[in-house]
């Protein structure tokens, strides 16, 4: 969106009418043509129908039965338990995948070794696997008829249809986020500063926390934001392993399905609106942090690689 004063400056520079106030080509000294308007209109219609209308619909349907019904829906015991479980899952998964991402970033970004490309592919692998299949892997391992499942169940350890399964499936699905943001950023920042610190007598950890981390902090944050959004919102993988027992193994995205299948639509959308709020905050945070990661530069090549999510 152009600021009004800027469009006035432009108006003095080149011939333009009222249409140019709403829409004009970025480059070239030409007026807005019918074709220009058509391109912008098609885009606005496409993104409007598929993205803007759905987002607005969630909030309008959530509040359809009034604010009281809304608060009742998001504070009743099953909803509270789902919110809590979602929060706990994210709180467990995020630090683990952050640690993994830092380790992978350090190893792959700062060192040269054989098999690097293979390792990078392996890190990205969970993005290529359908979430349902990701969840299935843990059922095959830990399910009642899985490989180690029967033995574990006999010893009182329940993973599938229980919280550990939810956490494992979420870890699998979100493991690449921090790592794949961090590897290119670590690579781009080079290792000269670290080498200088080490030769001046700094310890390894000191170098890492004082030199490396400040250099890559925006990349870390970017990865954590994306990882968090997915950890909170994962449905397919978690759905397979959780059993979706309300009050016990139901995360927010799963609880929405329960409400929806019970024809409790306004409650389903009320809980959805909380998740949508997180999604909107994610978009805002992603935009702000993305600016620091440097959109349009080499380091941000990762920004569009993350698309393989």
């Amino acid at each position: 969106m152009s600021a009004p004063d800027r469009s006035l400056v432009g108006a003095a520079a080149r011939p333009r009418g009222w249409i140019e106030r709403f829409c004009r080509p970025v480059s070239g000294n030409r007026r807005t043509s019918f074709g220009d308007i058509a391109i912008v209109a098609i885009s606005a219609l496409f993104l409007g129908i598929f993205l803007v209308i759905p987002l607005a619909t969630i909030f309008s349907l959530a509040l359809k039965n009034g604010i009281h019904a809304y608060f009742r829906a998001v504070t009743e015991p099953y909803a509270r338990s789902a919110i809590w479980l979602t929060f706990v899952t994210a709180a467990v998964v995020l630090p683990i995948n952050l640690g993994f991402g830092l380790a992978a970033g350090w190893a792959i970004g700062k060192f040269e070794f054989r098999g690097k490309e293979f390792l990078t592919t392996l890190i990205d692998l969970p993005f290529a696997v359908s979430p349902v299949i990701g969840g299935m892997l843990f059922v095959l391992l830990f399910g009642a008829q899985g490989i180690v499942g029967p033995w574990l169940i006999a010893h009182g350890v329940k993973i599938i249809f229980a919280k550990p399964g939810i956490i494992l499936a979420t870890m699998f699905v979100t493991s690449p986020f921090v790592a794949r943001e961090l590897i290119p950023v670590m690579q781009a920042s080079g290792s000269e500063e670290e080498q200088a610190a080490i030769s001046l007598g700094a310890g390894g950890w000191q170098t890492f926390f004082r030199v490396t981390l400040p250099n890559v902090k925006w990349g870390v944050l970017y990865g954590v934001i994306l990882c968090n959004a997915r950890a909170i919102g994962e449905f397919g993988a978690v759905s397979v392993v959780s059993g979706n027992i309300s009050g016990l193994t139901s995360t927010m995205p799963l609880y929405i399905e329960v409400l929806y299948d019970d024809y409790n639509f306004s409650a389903a959308f009320a809980v959805s609106s909380l998740l949508s709020l997180v999604a909107v905050l994610t978009l805002v945070a992603k935009r702000i942090v993305g600016r620091h990661v440097g959109v349009g530069t080499a380091a941000s090549a990762s920004a569009d690689e993350e698309l393989a999510a």
Binding site: F269, L275, V280, K286
Partner: peptide
């Protein structure tokens, strides 16, 4: 990328919505 138009900033930001929105929310909506 090629036009300045009203609402472009919002449309550009909302393009990532399908990444951020949980799939079950997208489904019922």
């Amino acid at each position: 990328t090629r036009y300045r138009f009203i609402g472009a900033g919002i449309l550009d930001a909302i393009v990532d919505l399908p990444f951020a929105l949980p799939t079950s929310v997208a489904g019922i909506t």
